[in-house]
């Protein structure tokens, strides 16, 4: 399985309208909720926020990967949003976050959860790719970039 197998272009929002971290998370949760990916959006939103409050998922370089393992999310899914100005995620490098990946999944598969987190963080360690993603105007463009980049990697499992 690859990241781009579960990150469909419907789940990519460019740009997102949120004014702060919580709104950004809510926006992406609701986006997945629209496609019936999440059983209970309120519960999933709360789970992601709870996790975020313990420690930030702002990994630096303008990237954040909020995530949760929760019973409201029976299947793994990833949503992505790009913010034009940048939001405060209390990132480790203190920079504002412009690219947000939301990962949700079930409680019983920590292995795949970690692999997906790791795949996102690896892809985003490529500075050129980050810059190109920020230039994208549509979901299709962003998805093509990610698919191209991911072709260099092996499948997740």
């Amino acid at each position: 399985m690859r990241l781009t197998d579960i990150l469909l272009n419907d789940y990519i929002k460019i740009p997102i309208d949120a004014k702060d971290r919580d709104e950004a998370i809510k926006e992406l949760v609701m986006l997945l909720g629209q496609f019936n990916i999440i059983d209970d959006t309120d519960q999933a939103y709360k789970a992601v926020l709870d996790r975020e409050k313990i420690m930030t998922t702002g990994v630096g370089n303008g990237i954040a990967i909020p995530h949760c393992k929760d019973s409201s999310c029976p299947n793994f899914a990833v949503a992505m949003g790009v913010h034009t100005k940048g939001l405060n995620f209390e990132s480790i490098d203190k920079k504002d976050v412009r690219i947000v990946f939301l990962l949700v999944g079930p409680e019983n598969n920590p292995g795949l959860h970690i692999k997906l987190l790791s795949r996102i963080s690896r892809l985003m360690s490529n500075e050129d790719l980050r810059d190109e993603l920020l230039e994208c105007k549509t979901a299709d463009e962003a998805l093509n970039l990610l698919q191209e980049e991911e072709n260099y990697y092996f499948d997740l499992d």
Binding site: R51, I54, M55, T56, T57, V59, G60, I65, H67, K69, I92, N108, N109, P110, G111, H113, I114, K115, L117, S118, S121, R122, S125
Partner: peptide
């Protein structure tokens, strides 16, 4: 469970017990 991220320098510092537990 944690072997896959042991050497992932970027991700590992961001993981909590709750993320990696089964």
């Amino acid at each position: 469970d944690i072997r896959p991220v042991l050497f992932d320098r970027e991700l590992a510092p961001l993981l909590l017990a709750t993320d990696v537990m089964s």
